[in-house]
């Protein structure tokens, strides 16, 4: 490459870098991920802003399932999820978030300001941007959308309020103690942590099938006093 070409390339890279840096400075500090107020373990402020914007585009407030994506804690779920996946996968997932957040540089949303980062777009522009990924003729773009939507949907559908609204919250199943429950300790613990004894062993007998009236699992019950179990 001729020296002038190298200079031009370096200048172009510097400009792109500066543009990305400027786009990155504009993110607000996110709220803590949970009621306990602990720190975010993996997601940075850019990623939280993007996830909340994308989650609210996928799951806007109101309608048949009241909570929005951000109200359902999708970003906090994703932070927990990233903690549980291998490091290589985690890097790829974070790259996915960056790709769609800044993908407007390559695939701008409609409007004169459609080049702005995804989380800075208007609601209508975000819808159009995501629809561009979803309906693209390029398989890799559709794959990006499918992957992003799957991640955010998993987070949305992990929220007890959402599951109650859909009547899909797990039910309460009384524990059945079998021989192996006297054999296998909880993961990471020794045998002394096994909570059961021979006296707890299941003696057989018919347990009726579950059904719509089976109470919800305690973790999924509505904490407000007026709510009951069973159907949400």
């Amino acid at each position: 490459m001729a020296p002038s070409g190298v200079v031009l390339l370096a200048l172009a890279l510097a400009l792109v870098g500066a543009a990305l840096a400027l786009r990155g400075f504009a993110y607000p500090r996110p709220r803590p991920p949970g009621p306990g107020g602990g720190p975010w373990r993996h997601l940075g402020r850019m990623e939280v802003a993007f996830v909340e914007a994308a989650a609210d585009t996928l799951f806007p407030p109101g309608g048949e399932i009241p909570p929005s994506g951000s109200e359902a804690g999708v970003a906090a779920f994703l932070d927990r999820y990233l903690d549980a996946v291998p490091a290589g996968v985690r890097r790829l997932m974070r790259l996915l978030l960056v790709l769609v957040e800044h993908g407007t540089l390559l695939f701008p949303a409609p409007g004169w300001n459609g080049f702005r980062r995804f989380s800075a777009l208007s609601e209508a522009q975000r819808v159009a941007a995501l629809d561009g990924w979803r309906r693209s003729r390029l398989f890799p773009r559709r794959l990006v959308f499918t992957s992003l939507r799957a991640l955010l949907a998993m987070g949305y559908l992990a929220d007890p309020r959402v599951l109650r609204a859909l009547d899909l919250a797990p039910r309460d199943i009384e524990p059945v103690v079998t021989e192996v429950d006297l054999l296998y300790p909880p993961v990471g613990a020794g045998r002394e942590a096994i909570p059961w004894t021979e006296a707890d062993l299941d003696r057989g007998g018919h347990r009726p099938p579950l059904g719509p009236d089976t109470p919800l699992h305690p973790d999924y019950r509505d904490p407000t006093p007026a709510a009951g179990g069973g159907r949400a």
Binding site: L58, G63, A165, L168
Partner: peptide
């Protein structure tokens, strides 16, 4: 996605 997706999820 959007309200269309929520409506479809409610149909599950």
């Amino acid at each position: 996605f959007g309200h269309e997706l929520k409506r479809r999820l409610a149909e599950i």
